[in-house]
Design a protein around this nucleic acid. Structure first.
Lengths: 186, 186
DNA sequence: GAAGTTAGTAGACGCTTGTTTACTGGTCAA
DNA sequence: TTGACCAGTAAACAAGCGTCTACTAACTTC
């Protein structure tokens, strides 16, 4: 016993980063403790600060490692509502979807991460979405759609995967498509 | 100096309750400390537990003291979308609006208050709204509308009162009315 | 006026938090 | 083989948290 641990800087760093991503996603910023991360990553607590500086910087790195709304927006503008509806419905259903969005929602109340999250929402959702809209008041219309996205996330967190209890998935998607159309149309 | 304080059980209890309501609204459950409440209420920390048992019970009492969506839903069903739009737009603009909604949003990430908040959202927003809808899938349609309400609250918290930067208030209300119609129509 | 009740107070309790320090012992170049 | 480097560890740090206990003193009741 008292096994000796291998020395693996890059690997340990990655294990910590993965553990942090998972936990921040599931629990939000201030529900996650350094010791929780270290246990999940099977690494010593001190190594987190050694590799990432602080909890806040680790969180920032978790946010930064995510792509921006991966692929969701890469469709013709006319298909955007349907695409967003499918994305939101899928995220509600599967409880996974975009991990960062979940982390954002769960961490919005923490003043320490307020700035980080605002910038992330802007650069990952609001900005790209507005950029794909033609016509006037693109930012405003994108903001309304973003409200729906984050709100659905909040309710999903509150009520679980069956938050939107409709007879079937297609009903959910059709309804959300209509709502996103109302959000986005010029 | 060393002024003597008057003995006023009911008054002190109320001061604590008011302070708690204000702070929970502005900061959310776990950003608010007992000592912060006691300072705001100008009362000793121990009195909070004496009068309310625990922080959690105090929060529950704050939630309970609020009316359920005061007056917002008391209109014919056809006018509900416009009414909700005005309500949300006003809340965004003035930064105050429904204090409880704000507290709910800001406290949703805390597991300790998860149940309290879910019940409160159900009984104060989702339930009454669904009850006023005719046609099939009333709960589902009310849930979609609730998503927009909570999401708008989240974005308002994130970006401040100018989250929805439209040329004027009427533009915001018209857009939101259309979106709520898409959420609620049978 | 004396005794009992109780609002209000000060301070400590045990615990958890993020962070830091001092140290151990593998790894690798010279 | 020896020495410098550094991944990994254990323990402690100060600060903050919710909560509780022992106490003071102002009211009420007889």
């Amino acid at each position: 016993m008292d096994e000796v641990r291998q020395r693996d800087r890059a690997g340990t760093r990655r294990r910590i980063l993965d553990a942090a991503r998972k936990l921040f996603t599931e629990l939000g910023y201030d529900q996650v403790t350094m010791r929780l991360i270290s246990a999940e990553a099977d690494a010593n607590v001190a190594l987190i600060n050694r590799y990432f500086g602080s909890k806040r910087e680790l969180f920032a790195e978790v946010l930064a490692m995510q792509g921006r709304f991966p692929g969701v927006l890469d469709v013709p503008e006319a298909e955007l509502p349907r695409r967003l509806a499918e994305y939101v419905a899928e995220r509600l259903r599967s409880e996974r979807g975009s991990p960062v969005m979940a982390a954002l929602i769960r961490s919005a109340s923490c003043s320490e991460t307020h700035g980080l999250i605002r910038d992330r929402v802007s650069s990952a959702i609001l900005g790209p979405l507005a950029a794909r809209l033609s016509g006037p008041e693109a930012i405003f219309r994108a903001t309304v759609a973003t409200s729906l996205i984050t709100g659905a996330g909040t309710l999903s967190q509150l009520y679980g995967p069956d938050a939107f209890d409709a007879p079937d998935q297609e009903t959910v998607i059709r309804r959300l498509t209509a709502v996103f159309e109302a959000c986005l149309r010029a």
